Simulated assay, not measured.
Amino acid sequence: MVRELKEVQGIIFKRQKYKEADLLAKIMTKQDGIITLIVKGALRPKSRLSAATLNFSTGTYIIYTSGHGLSNLRTYKEVKQFDGLYHDLTKNAYASFIFDLIDHAFVEYQPIGKYYNLALFALNKIDKGVDSEMITQIVQMKMLSAYGVEPELRHCVICGKEKGVFDYSIKLGGIVCSDHFGVVNSRMHLKPKETAVLRTIALLPIDRLGTISINEETKKATRKAIDRIYRETIDLNLKTKKFLDELKLF
């Protein structure tokens, strides 16, 4: 097994105690996928490596790796933190869920491509105070493709119509137009505006998403719809999602 020194750019998103003074830290990278790093001595007082591997730190990390299994963090450069996430439990909870969702869609060292940009987009927006709930919904809708259950949202799954009033059918895997409302028993009975929001956040490229302004009633309805889509199509039981849901009760 050949091990080599490699420079990776990425985002630290999970860490836990490994041995007496060591940490395991998960890093999400674009080209090399998700890697678990051993960070030796990180729990010792004044450790430089500890500060560089705080959750939601991003930068360049020099690792010793064989391309599978555990890798070792040797050093780092140009690391920065998203300070807005450290002082806000709710923001942190949303970000943790987003990264957990991406983490579970891939095996380690599998390149994640555009989903890395999606993760970075979400962190930047949440850190800056953009609506965390809507950013999370955007990520959830865009992550369905990574789980192999990308819905058809461009046109009606029955007749191909692209404009009009639409509803969503989990069973049919996408939107149905009002011409078929009477015969599609599996539709979710969403309001036209709610279906429109789901279509927009799923289809619009993240670099074209402007100011997000959606009323609480619509936001709550789309959250319930997305939760149901995930529940009925993907077998996921994430602790971060449960914690996020509990936070919303208070």
Rank of each mutant, 00 (worst) to 15 (best):
K46S: 12
T65L: 00
E232P: 11
P192Y: 08
T211I: 13
K128G: 12
P192D: 09
K224Y: 05
I102D: 01
Y64F: 14
G164M: 12
V165A: 14
T240H: 02
A122F: 08
Y94T: 09
K114L: 10
H155G: 07
T200K: 11
V176P: 01
L24F: 15
C177Y: 02
C177S: 03
V157Q: 04
L54H: 02
D88R: 02
L89C: 05
L236K: 00
K26E: 10
C159W: 01
Y230H: 03
N117W: 13
A119L: 09
N117E: 15
A52M: 02
K239T: 02
E246A: 05
G160E: 04
K220Q: 13
A202D: 04
I135H: 10
E108G: 00
R208E: 12
I135T: 11
L89Q: 06
I112T: 09
L153K: 06
R228E: 13
L89K: 08
I63V: 12
N185V: 01
K46M: 13
F82I: 01
H68D: 09
L123H: 05
K241T: 02
P205R: 14
L43T: 11
S57C: 09
A51N: 11
F82N: 00
H180Y: 06
K191L: 12
S169F: 06
K19D: 10
F82A: 01
E216S: 10
A196G: 15
Y94I: 11
Q110D: 09
G173R: 02
K91I: 10
K125R: 15
I212K: 06
C159E: 02
F121A: 05
L204T: 15
T240E: 00
E246P: 00
N55L: 10
M28A: 06
A52Y: 04
S50E: 09
K220G: 03
Y18V: 05
R187F: 04
L123N: 09
L54G: 01
C159F: 02
D103H: 02
L101M: 03
E78L: 08
N92E: 12
D245W: 01
R74M: 14
V176E: 00
Y109S: 06
P111E: 05
I11Q: 04
G113D: 14
V139A: 08
K125G: 04
F243M: 11
V2F: 08
K163V: 10
E20F: 13
E232F: 13
A42N: 13
K14G: 03
T60K: 12
V149K: 12
K19P: 01
S169H: 03
K241V: 00
S145L: 01
K248A: 14
M28P: 05
Y61M: 06
I126N: 00
L198I: 15
F99M: 04
M1I: 08
V149D: 07
E152W: 00
